[in-house]
């Protein structure tokens, strides 16, 4: 069935709310407005204000409240409008949610799910457009997911809620309008990367909003006779090193596509793991396509120039292949 990424997220939440009375949704504009990206449209009418809760503009406050609710036995889904704003909630997420099980000797797990939008491409300028997934992927104690397909958007929430530890889900703002085929069985794990396209010449490793661009780049490369394998990381922490090593073992070449800034990026971490695991399999230096190291510009042409784009990915792949 064809459906949109936004609708897949909504269905997943609706199902979770109906299935478990402990689940509730909380965040800025999730109720009356139906969600900044309209993911919770209609849920207030269906489930009522006790379970679809609009919050004040205080990420520190409502993420903290979510942690408290999780500790109290609830299964909160906390929506943060963008990853930029989530920086106000880094303290409760990093210092409390991620650490509490460890600090309590295993006594206090925090079964919290935080959903947030990430990424650029909608002319929302520097304060609403950054990709800071790597900040969270750095922190032990939380699981970090990046659904990039309609199927993962539908399937990842349930295992995330079932996880006894905090899970952060990044939804790229460019993906909400994407339509795709929702398979009958959309259930999925939240531990493994996925090969989205097979090919023997080069591995293109990416996640989130860059997946559609990378798949398109693979199509271009195919027209030039280059068979690119596209790997969708899906889970940014813990990284699925085995799948990364397996694809590079097959192709001997890799390009990492990551909308984060290059310095200290997830792409850097993936490269490090390739070097640790596949050094003697490499047939060329590993390359990266990341965002330019500027605050994401507002102007459309500058924003486009700052982000990973299909021609940049194709050129990087050609470079690695010496073509």
């Amino acid at each position: 069935m064809k459906t949109s990424y936004r609708e897949a997220i909504r269905q997943a939440m609706r199902e979770a709310l109906a299935a478990d009375a402990r689940v509730f949704l909380m965040g800025e504009d999730v109720g009356r407005y139906g969600g900044t990206y309209a993911c919770s449209k209609g849920l207030l009418d269906e489930f009522g204000p006790e379970r679809i809760r609009d919050t004040p503009l205080s990420e520190l406050g409502f993420v903290g409240a979510g942690i408290g609710a999780a500790l109290g036995g609830m299964r909160p889904i906390v929506e943060v409008m963008t990853v930029n704003f989530s920086l106000l909630a880094l303290d409760p997420i990093v210092n409390t949610a991620a650490a509490l099980r460890h600090m309590s000797g295993g006594q206090f797990p925090v079964p919290l799910v935080v959903r947030m939008a990430t990424g650029a491409g909608r002319q929302l300028a520097a304060q609403h457009s950054h990709s800071l997934e790597n900040w969270y992927a750095h922190v032990p104690g939380i699981r970090v997911l990046a659904p990039a397909t309609v199927s993962d958007a539908r399937g990842m929430l349930a295992p995330a809620l079932a996880d006894p530890d905090p899970v952060v889900i990044f939804e790229h703002a460019q993906l909400y309008n994407q339509e795709g085929e929702l398979p009958e069985d959309w259930r999925c794990d939240i531990c493994r990367a996925a090969v989205r396209r097979e090919g023997g010449d080069i591995s293109l490793i990416t996640y989130g909003g860059s997946l559609p661009k990378t798949l398109e780049a693979a199509e271009w490369l195919a027209a030039e006779g280059i068979a690119a394998e596209v790997v969708d990381l899906r889970v940014l922490r813990p990284l699925d090193t085995a799948t990364i090593a397996a694809t590079v073992g097959r192709t001997h070449r890799a390009v990492i596509v990551d909308e984060g800034w290059r310095s200290g990026s997830l792409a850097a971490e993936v490269m490090a793991r390739i070097l640790e695991n596949c050094f003697f399999d490499l047939d060329a230096p590993v390359a990266r396509v990341c965002s330019e190291e500027v605050p994401i510009p507002y102007a459309k042409h500058l924003e486009e120039a700052a982000l990973p784009q299909v021609p940049k990915i194709v050129a990087a792949a050609r470079g690695v292949l010496g073509k």
């Binding site: 795709g180 989205r196 798949l215 470079g319």
Partner: peptide
């Protein structure tokens, strides 16, 4: 199982060759 590429819109039939880009890194 053989993983298939995600369902996508039809590819550009004859993609324009992208201009040279300085090598990442």
């Amino acid at each position: 199982t053989p993983k298939t590429a995600a369902t996508r819109t039809a590819p550009t039939p004859a993609p324009p060759r992208p201009g040279p880009v300085t090598r990442a890194g």
